[in-house]
């Protein structure tokens, strides 16, 4: 049942149950924002980013599970708000065509975990943090940029600009610029340098290490 529901989304998930939940959420989003057109509505994109921020707040704020598990839940929720294939391919640049299908599959899996960890930390939701929408504007012919600020209790605020594209009936994040610097562009040059010095396997090892650290210790 869930397999049939989930297939049209064309995204990887770790198991069937969250897939079902997310399919329901995605269906709700489609209804909320109406049908898609070539250009992305800045207002719709802003509502979408606000919704993701609210999801992060409600998930991280619950006390039913450990922080590590709650952060993993946020990443699973976010998985469907990001065009991970698109970002992953852009970041790899010309190397995309040079690697084997198996290496590509490994890269996409590792990159998805890495990008969700990196981007979701810019959505706020921790105690005392708040995300506010500063504005939204069209970008190019297809996208909208949503400008946000996260105020944090023990660190300077972060300005993050989210590049959103309407894909079919869904809004999808395709880049985030933190303090004006595009993550996708930064990662593209960083990854190219690792591949040049250590080969594609070196990049896979580096990506794996970025999401494989041991969490805080309870005792």
């Amino acid at each position: 049942m869930s397999i049939i529901l989930f297939r049209p989304l064309q995204h990887p998930v770790s198991n069937i149950r969250p897939a079902l939940r997310i399919a329901v959420v995605a269906a709700a989003l489609c209804g909320l924002f109406g049908s898609a057109s070539a250009a992305t509505s800045p207002q719709g994109a802003a509502q979408f980013i606000q919704w993701l921020g609210d999801q992060a707040i409600s998930t991280l704020g619950s006390t039913n599970s450990s922080l590590e598990q709650r952060e993993a839940s946020v990443r699973e929720l976010m998985r469907h708000g990001f065009d991970l294939q698109f970002i992953g391919r852009f970041v790899l640049g010309r190397h995309w065509r040079k690697v084997t299908p198996d290496q590509r599959a490994q890269y996409q899996q590792l990159f998805a975990s890495y990008i969700l960890q990196t981007y979701s930390s810019h959505l706020g939701g921790y105690s005392g943090e708040s995300l506010s929408i500063k504005g939204a504007k069209p970008a190019g012919s297809k996208d909208a940029i949503v400008q946000t600020r996260i105020v944090r209790p023990s660190a300077p605020p972060i300005d993050a600009d989210w590049r959103v594209r309407a894909q079919g009936n869904q809004y999808m994040i395709i880049d985030v610029a933190v303090e004006g610097v595009s993550m996708a562009v930064t990662q593209r040059s960083e990854f190219a340098s690792v591949i040049k010095n250590h080969g594609f396997d070196g990049l896979l090892a580096a990506l794996r290490a970025r999401t494989d650290k041991m969490p805080a210790s309870a005792h």
Binding site: N197, G202, A206, A209, R210
Partner: peptide, 13 residues
Amino acid sequence: SHFLAGEGGDPDF
């Protein structure tokens, strides 16, 4: 993991 990841620099295998 830190030395493998090489964030902001080059991995030190």
